[in-house]
């Protein structure tokens, strides 16, 4: 029994686990279509892949440390969804940038200054409230981006977006129900959520002004508008005034200068990558 067999629905009851898995890129033409700026496509896939990989690593750090077993698995599942998105996006990057590099080359054999993820994704894990708040912000924004990219002129990116929208919708739901519960929970959970919202706010300008996917159909203003409306809805349900905690409100913290998209990094990415890449770099010829 190989994993490939699980893509086929054998229509028998032999397996307690499900069969009939689907390949999101099945039947999709892998060639980069004419009329698309391959450099733009590569940059977009790399940036969105880096967001996913770095976020997945931060979520995986909760393994054995989450407040409940159920939450540990939930966060790890979400991380694995993002890791899957990163793999597809890196594979597309290698095709679009003409180097033909595989996904491992991007994940394991680039140094911090080669990464283009949003800096919010690489900040240290913090407490559960920070993790949930960051997950909410990044998921809501990413969902808005990928909803637009489902009609991207590149069929592979559009297929990746279509698969990702379903995953991200769940990530948003999970983060939102927890945000509401933290806001409406105990005085301590509410304080921690308030702190997390103010910690995240200065980094929000980066995704909201991101132009990475603009050339492929995800208009920055459209994405920002949908992101802020979605976030405001959750924040209100958590019992906060959006104008106090969202970055465009009067009490917002000043945005941190620079952008992860331009290669600006915090000091937190290098240690994250050191751990992430250590085994692959120690055994560069190893096979999975």
């Amino acid at each position: 029994m190989s994993h490939e067999d699980l893509y086929v629905d054998h229509d028998n009851a032999q397996w307690a686990f499900g069969t009939g898995f689907t390949d999101p890129l099945h039947g999709v033409d892998q060639r980069v279509p004419d009329g698309i700026d391959a450099g733009d496509l590569a940059a977009c896939c790399l940036a969105l892949g880096d967001d996913a990989l770095v976020s997945a690593q931060r979520l995986a750090e909760w393994c054995t440390r989450a407040p409940e077993l159920e939450e540990e698995l939930a966060l790890a599942n979400i991380g694995l969804d993002l890791l899957g998105q990163a793999r597809l996006l890196y594979a597309r990057t290698g095709r679009a940038d003409g180097t033909g590099r595989g996904e491992d080359a991007y994940a394991y054999f680039r140094d911090p200054d080669g990464f283009r993820n949003l800096r919010l994704a690489e900040l240290p894990g913090g407490d559960f409230a920070f993790t949930i708040t960051r997950l909410l912000v990044l998921s809501v924004w990413r969902l808005a981006v990928f909803e637009e990219l489902t009609s991207a002129p590149d069929p592979v990116l559009a297929a990746i977006a279509a698969k990702s929208v379903k995953e991200l919708s769940y990530h948003c739901h999970y983060a939102a129900v927890w945000t509401v519960r933290l806001g409406d929970g105990t005085p301590e959970s509410r304080d921690r959520l308030r702190t997390a919202l103010s910690d995240v706010a200065p980094w929000l300008g980066e995704p909201l002004t991101d132009q990475t996917a603009a050339g492929l159909g995800a208009e920055s203003a459209v994405v920002a508008d949908r992101t802020l409306r979605h976030l405001a809805d959750v924040v209100v349900r958590a019992g906060f005034d959006p104008s106090e905690v969202l970055p465009l409100g009067p009490a917002s913290a000043p945005a941190i200068p620079g952008s992860g998209r331009d290669g600006d990094r915090t000091e937190h990415l290098a240690p994250l990558l050191t751990e992430l890449q250590s085994i692959a770099r120690a055994h560069p010829q190893a096979q999975w």
């Binding site: 307690a16 686990f17 499900g18 069969t19 009939g20 898995f21 409940e68 159920e70 698995l73 939930a74 599942n77 769940y170 739901h173 999970y174 129900v177 519960r181």
Partner: peptide
């Protein structure tokens, strides 16, 4: 089985714990 603070979270946890291998 699982533990959850309320019905809505129980459903979220059930999805994460028991349907992650394409079972349901």
């Amino acid at each position: 089985s699982l533990r959850a603070p309320d019905d809505a979270m129980a459903l979220v946890h059930a999805r994460d714990l028991y349907t992650r291998r394409n079972e349901g």
